[in-house]
Design a protein around this nucleic acid. Structure first.
Lengths: 264, 264
DNA sequence: CGGAGTGTTGACCCCGTTCAAATTTGGTGG
DNA sequence: CCACCAAATTTGAACGGGGTCAACACTCCG
């Protein structure tokens, strides 16, 4: 197949951030401008490079403008566990808790561009923040990170390979949609299957077979680096086991209900 | 065997809290007294009762004085994943982030006694806290919770059953030692194997077999509800795969090094 | 053209699940 | 103190999900 490598939406890496932030709340003039200056100067990171190492003070946060970043831990025997992902619009190494330290290393999985977000950190730590809406968004992001981390536990602890991969793809889709990076049910996935496997606790080989399984079931399609979701209800059901409504009420509020998690 | 059921160190449930807190920092007079008043009035929770439900505002934190508490999520098909544990001395439903919501339900696994810790929350949210040392300890606890949650991901994602159980027991041991509840290498484990399995992502049956395995290898001993660690180096090696030093340097700082995590 | 990185496939096997049933433990009331 | 029952632990047998170890194909790049 010929090179259709519009691999990144690199047209304007800043657009994703703006779309993402205004998906959460409409920014007043001042704050929109503050955000735009913030992402005015971007720092590039090479694929595989460490943005912040484990144990470091979380006093130099970043805002991802393009590329994919993660938090990861390595076991003594060399195996790696990816803990969570940071996509364009996300805050990296950001903690409003003063004196907080990185519990794991932050690593840029692809080439990426990030903006130093120290201003956002200082803004949120102030009792009367200059940019209240931005502060609110930062707080929401911190909450979302916690939810994602807990979901990662459930994924790795209680779900089958098929369900894990489905849930992860759904997470990516839902998040990228907020920043306009997943138009028409498809998004660019610039990660190797090995990396996906490291996130979801599978071997590379089985990761590959599981994706094939999802393709065979016509739930997704993949071409080049593009993932297209063909059957959203099916994917939802796979990700959340919602196909089997055994327990009647009272469970919708649980975090495990994936549906409206990314629709603020 | 005759009833040797000194099941709980219920002699004085407050002692554990005090031991625990002074393990982190020596409290000045005022703060020690503040802590003692705080745990003056304890609220009992029944085994299995919900302390705070998922989605609720985290504005009513608790301090565990006795018993075991956890955070847990239930999947639509009824299976449960335990996310993390809270032992005597630990803060439950505590978040310094204003407006934070419970990402999962808090549940008392055993009968427990907790002290309302709203004062500690207000103390830490103040820019100039009345009790600086207590504030520091609360912050440390928040950091520890994050580390534990990430470790839980690695456990469920990358470790075998044998390693998971070993690591979890080691975590319990290390934490209980800080509050004086694990004298002479043994501690009371008031949880059923089903609950342990729900934490570590195993079936109840296999949880049972794995504990037998650990006993057979003379790593631990269990009698009644008491767990005794017979071979600490072996347990450390199992928990952290430290038996195979494949990767030379630079990894000690990773959070996965379990050794000194609970020796502040 | 060669080599590294990634995706794909096949064969084999073991770790952990599932489903039962048996056994032990603990609690409760007679 | 014993009978009784529910909960928890333990055991067995059979199955299958996922890991491991190869080899191979493809693309990208120097």
């Amino acid at each position: 197949m010929p090179a259709n490598k519009s691999r990144s939406s690199a047209a304007n890496p800043r657009l994703a951030v703006l779309t993402y932030f205004s998906a959460y709340a409409s920014l007043p003039q001042t704050e929109a401008e503050a955000l735009r200056t913030l992402i005015g100067r971007l720092t590039p990171f090479a694929a595989g490079s460490e943005i912040l190492s484990a144990g470091a003070l979380l006093d130099t946060p970043w805002l991802v403008a393009s590329g994919w970043v993660c938090r990861a831990t390595r076991l003594p025997d060399g195996r790696r566990q990816i803990l969570d992902f940071y996509l364009p619009g996300d805050l990296v190494a950001f903690s409003s808790r003063p004196g907080a330290k990185a519990a794991a290393a932050y690593i840029s999985l692809t080439r990426s561009e990030c903006a130093p977000a120290g201003d956002l950190l200082r803004n949120i730590q102030d009792a009367n923040p200059r940019w209240p809406v931005l502060a609110e968004i930062c707080r929401t992001q911190e909450q979302q990170i916690e939810i994602r981390v807990l979901q990662q536990i459930v994924r790795n602890g209680r779900q089958t390979a098929y369900e894990r991969v489905g849930h992860l793809l759904l997470e990516f889709y839902g998040r990228l949609r907020l920043s306009g990076l997943a138009p028409e049910g498809s998004f660019t996935l610039p990660l190797t299957q090995e990396i996906l496997a490291e996130a979801v606790g599978l071997s590379t080989v089985h990761m590959n077979r599981t994706m094939q399984h999802l393709r065979r079931d016509k739930v997704i399609r993949t071409e080049d680096g593009l993932v297209t979701i063909l059957n959203t209800p099916a994917l939802l059901s796979i990700a959340g086991r919602l196909g089997t409504p055994n327990q009647p009420g009272a469970l919708q509020r649980e975090i495990w209900a994936t549906q409206d998690l990314y629709a603020p």
